[in-house]
Amino acid sequence: MSSSKFVRRALVGGALAAGAALWAVRPRSFGDKQKHFVPSVPEAWYAHRGLHDAGSGLTEEYAVESAAYVALARSMAIKAGYGSAAESGPIAPENSLASFAAACEAGFGIELDLQLTLDGQVVVVHDPDLMRVAGDPRRIEDLTYDELTRIPLFPAPAEPGDAVAHPLPKSQMNPPLVTTPDAAPDGYYQHVPLFADVLRVVAGRVPLIVEYKFDDNAAWDERCDELMEKGDELLRAYDGAYVIESFNPRAVDWYRQHRPEVCRGQLAEGAPVSNPGAWAAGLLAFDWLSRPDFVAYDWHGGNSPQMRATRALGATAVSWTVRSSDELAECDDWFDRHIFEAFVPRR
């Protein structure tokens, strides 16, 4: 083959590859948004799992700014009627009613996570189990909501600002020997809440980013459909601003098919090539399925080629999760909205 033919084929091949890549990362079309009267992601700072005084992001790495954040979470929760200044332990742990009420009092939007209990109740909790937030290794899908009401988040000896709960007695045995108390513990505490109760507390005061959470983002089963249907049923009845998102493109596609009028987002992050599925998702290669209105990306990747491309094509870029003023300064130019924790952003 002559060098000129090789160059022509390489150019054609490169153009086709670039075209395919742009097709894959293309968000929902402007015409489709107009047709369904789709709102944009409301302009707000979004408090990750609520404005919380225990839980995600409150690690030693962010201690310089997190003290003010924890103090704000506590004061806003108390203002909303949760706990008191006399409480020695956490008042508003992550993904609790108190943390969401605190965010509302402070005027922040809220990012939260949905899962299903054993008895099919839609609850707000991030991890598949309770180990990190309650010292209890049992899984959400193996517990009823009634049981969850008797399991305190960040129980004593937890302190404000703790990132991880202390393990419960016998929780680290093999197998664990943790059981649910027969009665609710004495004193003030927060537990995993129903999504319905969260919506009642927020009551349209601030916008929500609602994440549908799954163990395996490459799989889909009847419980996944159940979560989508029940979560959406609650949102249909809710009188307030919200958008939805998920790492699982099938969940975002569920909204494309069933609720095209809802603003939908694809969650993603960069991943190594050694994990092909996650690597492709990080490249936004599955956006052809979900055709999102926004992409919520790990804040480190805002300047990546795929994020620059999808933003240029019309997607709103949302960062997760910014935990300091320095991180915000590093990524702010590449995102339109931010999900934050562990520091108080200037508004």
Rank of each mutant, 00 (worst) to 15 (best):
S3R: 15
S4D: 13
R9V: 15
L11T: 14
V12G: 10
A15C: 09
A15V: 12
A17C: 06
A18E: 06
L22S: 00
W23D: 14
R28Q: 14
F30H: 14
L58D: 05
L58P: 07
T59F: 13
A63L: 14
A68L: 12
M76V: 09
M76S: 12
M76G: 01
A77M: 07
K79A: 08
G81F: 04
P90F: 08
P93C: 08
N95F: 12
S96N: 03
C104M: 02
G107S: 08
G107C: 06
E111I: 03
E111A: 07
L114Q: 01
G120E: 10
V122Y: 04
V124R: 03
H126F: 00
D127C: 11
D127Y: 04
L130S: 07
R132S: 01
R132I: 03
P137N: 07
R138W: 10
L143Q: 03
T144F: 09
D146N: 13
L153E: 09
A156M: 10
A158V: 10
G161A: 04
P167W: 07
P176Q: 10
L177S: 13
V178Y: 02
V178T: 01
T180E: 04
P181R: 06
G187C: 02
Y188R: 04
Y189I: 02
Q190G: 05
V192D: 00
F195P: 05
V198S: 00
V201N: 10
V206A: 00
I209A: 02
V210N: 03
D215A: 15
D216Q: 01
N217H: 14
A219N: 12
A219M: 11
W220E: 05
C224Q: 03
D225H: 06
E233K: 14
V243P: 09
S246Y: 05
S246R: 04
P249A: 05
Q257A: 13
P260T: 08
V262C: 05
C263K: 06
L267P: 07
G270I: 11
A271W: 14
S274V: 15
W279N: 10
A280R: 11
A280F: 02
G282V: 08
D293S: 09
F294L: 07
A296Q: 12
Y297S: 13
H300I: 13
G301F: 14
S304W: 13
P305Y: 11
M307C: 04
M307G: 04
A309T: 03
T310F: 09
L313G: 01
G314D: 06
A317Y: 07
V318S: 04
S319T: 09
S324P: 04
H338N: 09
R346F: 14
